[in-house]
Amino acid sequence: MSQASKRSSLLEIHDHDHAIRELRLARAPVNALNPALVRELLDEVRSAPADGVEALVLSGREGLFSAGLDLPELLALDENGMEDFWGDFFALLEALARSPVPIASAITGHSPAGGTVLALFTDYRVQAEGDFKLGLNEVQVGLIVPPVIHRALARLIGPYPAERHLVAGQMIGAERALAIGLVDEALPVDRVVDRALEWCRFHLQLPRHSMRGTRELVRADLCAFFDEESLMDTKAFTRFWFQPDTQATLKQVVEQLKARR
């Protein structure tokens, strides 16, 4: 049982039993990650423990978790705006990695690029079965995955599988994602959020001090990535974003998306 405690045009926040808070992406039409959504999500992840929240669930609407970065809006930013965006995005990934409370991702449908990236830094991933795709397809839209994201993917699925996945830049289905360890479970879409909540409840039944202490121990390597500034060089990534070849490919992708609509 849950009760919506807060809603904006970007997020719905539902507080469930056992002090579990669900942060549901709600930015129409496709939950694309723009500066405002990233900042709001960052604020909510950071502030949740102080509100007495003991576990978090990230979710989206049925059929769609997030369509990834909002390319049209990001292409309209100048270099300072783009650098600020990458700074906030990396801060969000760090907040997910360093969260003192466990976080489960309820991947409720399609989740290309940025949507999959968010899930990489959470504790557990439940993916919707069916004709839904996820994965890191940055190469196909003209981008290079930032080193901190590469490290997180390699930590999760292994160095060579991560190499093959990133270089090809192909989206994959739930069955393949489960087979390579990109997600932990694949279930019917109407079961995904409930299962993520069940996962949280199970862990909150364990002795808090030992569960949290062990979690901190085993996630220390993930958190340590954020101690290496070279893995999150916002200036370098911004320079790459504004290279002519990158801009041309991104604009071509945007035009293709418009044509499909």
Rank of each mutant, 00 (worst) to 15 (best):
M1I: 10
M1R: 09
Q3I: 15
Q3E: 15
A4R: 13
A4G: 09
L10H: 13
L10I: 09
D15E: 04
H18V: 08
R21T: 05
L23I: 13
L23W: 02
R24E: 02
R24V: 13
R24M: 06
L25P: 00
R27G: 10
A28E: 09
P29D: 13
V30H: 12
V38A: 04
E40T: 09
L42H: 12
D43G: 12
E44M: 10
V45R: 00
R46Q: 14
S47G: 05
D51M: 11
D51E: 13
G52D: 03
E54C: 11
L58F: 01
E62N: 13
G63C: 06
L64G: 09
L71E: 01
L74M: 14
L74D: 10
A76H: 06
E79Y: 00
D84G: 10
E94M: 07
A95H: 00
R98F: 02
S99T: 09
P100Y: 01
P102L: 10
I103P: 00
I103A: 04
G109L: 05
H110S: 12
H110C: 10
S111D: 05
A113S: 08
G115S: 10
G115A: 14
L118N: 08
A119I: 15
A119Y: 08
T122W: 01
T122M: 07
Y124M: 06
Q127H: 08
Q127M: 15
L136C: 08
V139N: 03
Q140E: 10
L143V: 07
V145G: 00
V145E: 00
V145Y: 04
P146V: 11
P147N: 15
H150I: 12
R151Q: 14
L156Y: 01
I157K: 06
I157W: 01
G158I: 05
A168E: 14
G169I: 03
Q170I: 09
Q170R: 14
A174N: 05
A174L: 05
E175Q: 15
L178T: 06
I180W: 01
D184E: 01
A186R: 07
V192M: 04
V193F: 00
V193W: 00
D194C: 05
R195Q: 08
R195K: 13
L197P: 04
W199R: 07
C200Q: 03
C200K: 04
R201K: 12
R201E: 09
R201V: 11
F202L: 11
H203D: 01
H203L: 15
L204K: 11
Q205P: 00
L206C: 11
P207W: 15
P207M: 14
H209L: 14
G213Q: 07
G213F: 03
T214G: 12
R215M: 10
V218A: 08
A220T: 12
L222V: 03
M232G: 01
D233H: 08
T238N: 01
F242W: 11
D245Y: 02
T246R: 06
A248N: 06
T249M: 03
A259D: 09
